[in-house]
């Protein structure tokens, strides 16, 4: 095997590990920030690592059947596969992975794969709270998908491409970032992003105080650990996707982390100070102003 193959293999190993570390660290930081806003001291930033390591070492005593085993596997499959099809860093063979074999439309569907798999796993446990959470989550998805797709369509028709790598290529230089080139698309997409990240006011799916964490409620031990791992990787994947599309991507890891962190703070800070919507309110929220912004974004490109 020549060196490029080795670089590729190394990339497949490094990318998910980086995503995991960054994602979990972000999770820890969010816990600290939330605590400070609520006038608490909060756990150390590394707390989420210890939680996940502890969960991995635990044994699971009971299960409800095959789909419950498969649920977390589906979730991790979806998040790692999505990550592999997103170019993490610009023009770096180590971080490109499979990104030239799929595109934005593929990613839109790939990202749902995990939710549906999780939903199936949660469904088999028979816990009514899980089912309620799933019904809410899928309904919410129809809500935020509308402005998100409007924003993406606006960008895709503007540059006549659905490939993320090509979208990164057109954003050379600070002023060419798509956040400045098509601001309305960015607004629509970032509002959809609020729903996508499941922070308040859109945390209807997991709503701990209401439906006992919904879909996750029957999972413990390494199932929960796998789900949290997948969640962290998925968060990172979504952040990188947004950075690639709107913030010009990143040439090195430091830039990437700065950009993704700033982006991540938008849903987090919104979430801390907000109560929860009812599901139908959440859906109709996305169908009002965010959709209008998305339509404006398309009209600007067309006219």
């Amino acid at each position: 095997m020549d060196s490029s193959t080795w670089i590729k293999i190394l990339g497949y190993i490094i990318t998910p590990i980086t995503a995991f570390v960054v994602g979990v660290t972000y999770g820890g930081i969010v816990r600290v920030i939330t605590a400070r806003v609520q006038n608490r001291f909060g756990p150390p930033i590394t707390q989420n690592f210890w939680d996940i390591i502890k969960l991995y070492s635990k044994k699971t005593a009971v299960h409800h059947g095959l789909m419950q085993h498969w649920g977390p596997i589906f979730a991790i499959t979806a998040s790692v596969t999505s990550l592999f099809f997103i170019p993490v860093l610009k023009d770096s063979p180590l971080w490109l992975n499979n990104s030239f074999n799929g595109d934005i439309i593929f990613l839109l569907y790939m990202m749902v794969f995990g939710s549906l798999g999780m939903a199936l796993g949660a469904g088999q446990t028979g816990n009514p709270n899980s089912a309620i959470g799933v019904a809410r989550g899928l309904a919410l998805m129809v809500g935020y998908e509308v402005p998100f797709v409007l924003a993406l369509v606006a960008i895709m028709i503007q540059f006549k491409t659905t490939s993320i790598a090509e979208l990164m290529a057109v954003q050379d230089g600070f002023s060419n970032w798509l956040i400045f080139q098509s601001p309305f698309a960015f607004i629509a997409a970032i509002l959809a992003f609020l729903g996508m990240m499941h922070y308040a006011p859109f945390d209807v799916t997991f709503a701990p105080a209401e439906i006992a964490s919904g879909p996750a409620s029957e999972f413990g031990g390494k199932y929960l650990a796998l789900m949290q791992t997948s969640g962290s990787i998925f968060t990172f994947a979504k952040l990188v996707l947004f950075t690639d599309i709107f913030l010009g991507g990143a040439g090195d890891l430091v830039t990437l982390i700065v950009k993704t962190f700033l982006l991540y703070m938008i849903p987090v800070l919104t979430g801390i100070v907000n109560p929860r919507y009812r599901t139908e309110q959440a859906i109709t929220f996305f169908w009002k102003w965010p959709t209008v912004f998305g339509i404006i974004a398309i009209l600007i490109v067309v006219l």
Binding site: T60, A61, H63, H64, T77, G126, N127, L226
Partner: peptide, 28 residues
């Protein structure tokens, strides 16, 4: 990735866990 995940979940899992009815769930 699915096969890797299945191997991870399935590793030593067969004997360690037992199937319970759908009434045996977390209900606070």
């Amino acid at each position: 990735i699915f096969i890797l995940g299945a191997l991870f979940i399935g590793y030593k899992n067969k004997k360690a866990t037992r199937v319970v009815s759908t009434k045996d769930i977390h209900t606070a």
